[in-house]
Design a binder for these strands. Structure first.
Ligand SMILES: [Zn+2]
Ligand SMILES: [Zn+2]
Ligand SMILES: [Zn+2]
Ligand SMILES: [Zn+2]
Lengths: 133, 133
DNA sequence: CTCTGTTGTGTTACTCTATAACATCTGTCA
DNA sequence: TGACAGATGTTATAGAGTAACACAACAGAG
């Protein structure tokens, strides 16, 4: 089995913590939420996150040093994913755009550059927060 | 004056250090290179970097926690900048693509999201390093 | 069944990245 | 001159991530 049914205890705990949260969490925030479940050291969280990132069940937001549960599990095997991140409420939107991907891949090809991982993150203010002003 | 002629001593030191380097540097690496020039604490570097980032003379690479001198100073006031980053040699290419910008702005408009800062970073292996393979 | 390799766990200690708080200094402008 | 904004210097601390080592669980080969 390739997905969450084969997760270990710690991996499930970390994934659950992220899925319960509307926004991203830092590794240390996750740790704090899981102390009552027996987790004691950062490394326990980071190891679980490594696996979850491999499985694409979780994404890392580079500009926040934080992690978020995938919004569309199993749906973007090798996609180039983009994120909208509200700086006010912390909510995250996950999307992908084939035109963006093609343009970036085009730049890579024209420069003989072989991309392995691409980060696209838009920080700003979401509709709700603007309305709440 | 709006540019490098008005920089202070520390700001010039930090900018020089980044311009001398072909690739990105962490704040602490910058500090190490500037100890002989009198810098002693991380904060001195971070404060200079803050100003240089404001002036767009330096860019921060979120996926590396590192900084790089702008390749085209004065040329992209409000542009959305993308980076290609070689994971082997560390070299960085700075470019922008209007189509990518338009697509991302389009997503933002359609979601009533007001972006303030966008990060686009492609990590991979450059032509030279692939040839040297 | 036992050996063995692989993966996950737990723990301690550590490095690297970034900021808080406070005092001082320097220039600009009224 | 006085007042303010911005830059500086220093110490201490917070936040993010990894190294190293020992042990447990489990699957497959012989
Ligand atoms: Zn996803
Ligand atoms: Zn919001
Ligand atoms: Zn630039
Ligand atoms: Zn290279």
């Amino acid at each position: 089995m390739t997905s969450s049914s084969s997760l270990t205890k710690n991996q499930k705990l970390v994934l659950d913590a992220l899925e319960k949260e509307k926004g991203p969490l830092s590794a240390y925030s996750i740790l704090d939420r899981l102390r009552d479940d027996g987790l004691r050291a950062p490394l326990q969280v980071y190891r679980a996150l490594d696996k979850l990132l491999d499985l694409q069940l979780v994404h890392r937001l580079e500009s926040l040093n934080a992690f978020v549960a995938c919004a569309h599990p199993h749906c973007h095997a090798s996609h180039m994913i983009a994120f909208g991140i509200c700086e006010t409420c912390g909510q995250v939107w996950e999307f992908s755009d084939d035109v963006v991907r093609d343009r970036l891949m085009g730049w890579a090809e024209s420069h003989d550059f072989k991309p392995s991982k691409t980060t696209i993150e838009m920080k700003g203010v979401c509709a709700d927060c603007r309305a709440a002003g």
